[in-house]
Simulated scan of single mutants.
Amino acid sequence: MEKPYDLEVRTFLFAKSARNLIYSLQKSIANIEDGKQLIRSSGSVAANYIESNEHISDKDFDFRIKICRKEAKESLLWLKLLQNEFNNQHSIKLVELINEADELKKIFSAIVEKRKSR
């Protein structure tokens, strides 16, 4: 599947896919708690990217992009914690989301690095 070039769309789809995964998981204490955290962090990636596009200063933009990177890293943690025998039937979707979180983290890291060198 081709990924959207527009990062607002891409981060929205990441947050939406994370939610769809959580809706489909079996209910357990770990899934509920890790799912809550994943919903927060994935949504924060999307929300902070939108805010970065509406930045009021370069400093504000840089701050928001760093939050996007941090939240993508956090999303990776929760997704990896959900990757276990209990959730085996969702392993393909988990791998897809882990890969997307990692790609988003790398994109935001590249933006941070590029802006440092200006």
Score class of each variant (00 low, 15 high):
49 Y>A: 01
56 I>P: 00
16 K>E: 11
99 N>D: 14
94 L>G: 00
31 N>M: 08
22 I>A: 01
96 E>S: 14
80 K>T: 13
59 K>A: 06
46 A>Y: 11
60 D>R: 07
91 S>D: 05
39 I>T: 10
78 W>N: 08
60 D>A: 03
74 E>S: 08
90 H>N: 15
70 K>F: 09
76 L>A: 04
12 F>C: 07
81 L>I: 08
87 N>D: 15
60 D>N: 11
46 A>T: 05
37 Q>Y: 01
17 S>R: 11
41 S>H: 05
76 L>D: 06
93 K>N: 12
27 K>L: 02
19 R>V: 05
57 S>Q: 05
98 I>C: 06
18 A>P: 05
53 N>I: 04
36 K>I: 03
35 G>N: 09
83 Q>C: 15
32 I>Y: 15
61 F>M: 01
67 I>K: 05
55 H>T: 02
70 K>M: 12
42 S>L: 03
64 R>Q: 13
73 K>A: 04
54 E>N: 14
93 K>I: 15
53 N>S: 04
14 F>M: 04
20 N>M: 06
30 A>T: 07
79 L>I: 07
69 R>H: 13
112 V>N: 07
75 S>D: 11
75 S>L: 08
101 A>P: 10
62 D>G: 01
65 I>W: 00
20 N>G: 01
56 I>K: 15
13 L>W: 08
100 E>N: 02
57 S>Y: 04
56 I>D: 05
84 N>L: 01
62 D>C: 10
97 L>K: 12
43 G>M: 04
49 Y>L: 05
41 S>N: 06
10 R>G: 12
35 G>M: 10
21 L>E: 01
45 V>G: 03
36 K>N: 15
96 E>W: 05
88 N>F: 09
23 Y>A: 06
35 G>L: 10
82 L>E: 14
54 E>T: 12
102 D>Y: 14
96 E>V: 13
107 I>G: 05
78 W>D: 06
52 S>W: 01
46 A>G: 12
98 I>N: 04
12 F>K: 13
77 L>N: 10
45 V>Y: 02
78 W>F: 14
113 E>L: 14
84 N>A: 04
79 L>M: 11
86 F>Q: 13
52 S>F: 02
91 S>V: 06
102 D>H: 14
87 N>S: 07
104 L>M: 03
64 R>M: 13
30 A>I: 12
34 D>T: 08
39 I>Q: 04
58 D>M: 06
51 E>Y: 13
114 K>C: 02
92 I>T: 14
33 E>G: 00
